[in-house]
Every structure is written in C-alpha cells, then in structure tokens.
C-alpha cells in the first residue's frame, strides 16, 4: 500500500516538476527545491489528473506480474493459500468444522481417519481434525506474539545501533553477540524458568529469544540505507533526523526484516510447539499443536494418527512460512 502511494507521489512529482521547470520558477537552493517538491506533491495529490492513469497502469501491471510469478512458482502459491487457511482458522475455526474440540463421543474413541472423522478421534472420542483446527488459534497466536515481540524489540535496537552508530552500535551489537552465543531454545527455557508456564509466557520467551537475530539484520540494513545518497540528500534538504529515520531509512530497510519475519514465524511455530510438547505451554484439555502430539505419545502403538497427523500440519505450516520467506527474499532482491 505504501508502495503504490509512494509511486503515485513519485509520478506526480515528476510530471508537475517538469511543469514548474517550464514555467521558469525552478528553485535554486536545495531547501527551496525540497519545499517546492513538497508543495507540488500536495498539488499533485489534489489534482491527481496526470498521475491517475500511471498509478492504475502500475496496479494492473503489478497484478499481472503477480499472476505470472504465481504460475511460475506454484509451490509459493500453495504455501500462501495454506498459510491464509491456517490464519483464518485461528480467528474463525467455526468455518472449517462444526464439532466441539472439547466434547467427545466416548463410543467413537480412538477410531482411525474416516469420512466422518478426517483425522480420526482421540482417547475421549473427540474429533482430532476439530482439535487441530481449534489448536491453531493457541499455537499461531503464540507464534505471532513471539514474532511481534522479536520484531519490535529487535528492530528498535537494530535501528538505533545502525542509525546512531558510535557507542550505541557497539553496546547493542556486543549484547547481540552474547545472546547469539546462547542457543535460542535455551534462552527461551531460561526465560520460562523465571516467567512461569503458560502460552503467553512461552510466546514472550520465544520472541525475546529471536531479538538478537532481528536486531543484527535490521542494523546491517539500516547501515546500508544510511550511507545511500538519498539519505544524504534528505539531510541536506533540511529534514530533522526523526523525519529522515521514519520517512526514509525505516521503509527502505524494512524489506529484509519482513523476509526474516516470515522465517521467524516458522521458527516460532516450531519453538512454541516444542515448548508446549515439553509441557511448559498450554495445559490440557486446551488443544494446542505441540500438546496434542504430547498426548498422542501415550497411544503410539494403538493410534498412530494422534501423533502423525498433527505433526504433518505443523510441518506443512512451517514449510509454507519458510517458502513464503524465500519467495519474498528473491522478489526483494529482484526489485532491488
């Protein structure tokens, strides 16, 4: 969304800029030129006449290009569809199943996959498919909270380190070095020891465990952008540092961090379900992907579906998140 508005503003500035040059009112100093550009951009957004067709062109071109990439990479499309389905199931599990995840039919306990119960039933006769669908809420919410915390804290630290530089950079990066020396699962476990058990605590622990990686990538991106000529130009045209930071540095360095976010989403799902499997997360009877498998562990010999099928769901979701991250990455590189 920000891309299209930026595009429209860009084209408006280009077209009106040509007009002003023709009118011989070309500003001489850089500060004037900046004010001029800002003014003409505002004018352009009100008039909108010259920029409208180009923006529309860009949009259809973008859609066409997206479709073309989709045909070339069917795997990525499948991954995106799967992630969307799973995300929808976290907010509206009722769309996918009409059964209750907590109430079972004792007579139908431990039956294998069948048309009536797609993934079979558990030891209390509850439908496993329903429990997996409802379980996605707990697991994915925890993963999303984790990614959110990791991104927010990591980005702020990386942004500070890269943008301010000097001793701030040194301090933040040395801390990141130390955090990277400790495997993130162990770091999460240490945090859980203090915070206590529960899904939210697991999410916080997993999120804080990923801060170091995020801050490192954010910092390297910020440094790459900060040395670009247009940042120098933005400073030269009299912008305050806060404006340069939020208007120029942040949007231009966010790309690789978003790629990382998709990747971290997959990693967070694995970490959250592993910690729940170990018994530190959601407590039964709440359905959660990791603890579903932990319960199924007791029925390995008699009911294979209780462990195998929820695991397939986790693996597919992580695989999809990783595939999306890779697709975003190669797309980002192509554009840059």
């Amino acid at each position: 969304m920000t891309d299209t508005t930026a595009l429209a503003a860009e084209s408006a500035r280009a077209s009106t800029g040509r007009g002003t040059a023709h009118d011989d009112t070309f500003a001489t100093t850089s500060a004037d030129r900046f004010a001029d550009a800002a003014a003409s951009r505002e004018a352009g957004s009100i008039v909108e006449e010259p920029s409208a067709p180009t923006a529309a062109d860009g949009r259809t071109g973008r859609v066409r290009r997206l479709l073309a990439t989709g045909v070339q990479h069917p795997g990525t499309v499948l991954a995106a569809v799967w992630i969307v389905l799973v995300l929808v199931s976290t907010v509206a599990p009722g769309l996918f199943t009409s059964q209750d995840p907590l109430v079972g039919v004792p007579a139908e306990k431990l039956t294998g996959p069948s048309p009536a119960h797609w993934l079979g039933t558990d030891q209390l006769g509850r439908d496993l498919y329903t429990r997996v669908v409802f379980g996605s809420a707990l697991t994915l919410q925890a993963a999303l909270i984790a990614v959110g915390i990791g991104l927010a804290v990591g980005s702020v630290l990386g942004l500070l380190a890269g943008f301010v530089g000097r001793w701030v950079d040194d301090v933040v990066m040395r801390i990141a070095d130390v955090l990277l020396a400790i495997p993130s699962l162990l770091l999460s476990l240490a945090l859980i020891t203090v915070l206590g058990f529960g899904t939210v605590n697991v999410a916080i622990a997993v999120g804080l465990g990923s801060v170091a990686t995020v801050s490192r990538i954010m910092r390297s991106e910020v440094i790459r952008v900060r040395n670009a000529v247009y940042i120098e130009a933005a400073f030269a045209s009299g912008n305050r540092w806060s404006r340069v930071l939020f208007r120029h540095v942040l949007p231009n360095s966010a790309g690789p961090v978003l790629v990382l976010a998709a990747l971290e989403f997959g990693t967070a799902i694995l970490a959250v379900s592993a910690l729940s499997f170990l018994g530190y997360g959601a407590q039964p009877p709440a359905p959660e992907w990791g603890s579903l498998i932990a319960t199924g562990r007791n029925f390995l010999t008699t009911a294979w579906w209780l462990t195998t099928l929820p695991g397939v769901v986790i693996a597919l979701t992580v695989l999809s998140a990783n595939a999306l991250s890779r697709a975003l990455d190669s797309e980002g590189r192509r554009v840059r």
Binding site: L278, W304, T308, G311, A315
Partner: peptide, 13 residues
Amino acid sequence: AVPGFWFALLLIQ
C-alpha cells in the same frame, strides 16, 4: 521445517 519431537516419535513408531 519438521518438528524434532514429532520426528522422534515417528522414528519410535
């Protein structure tokens, strides 16, 4: 992408 604990259970099975 495969969860380690799940893979371990599959191996046992």
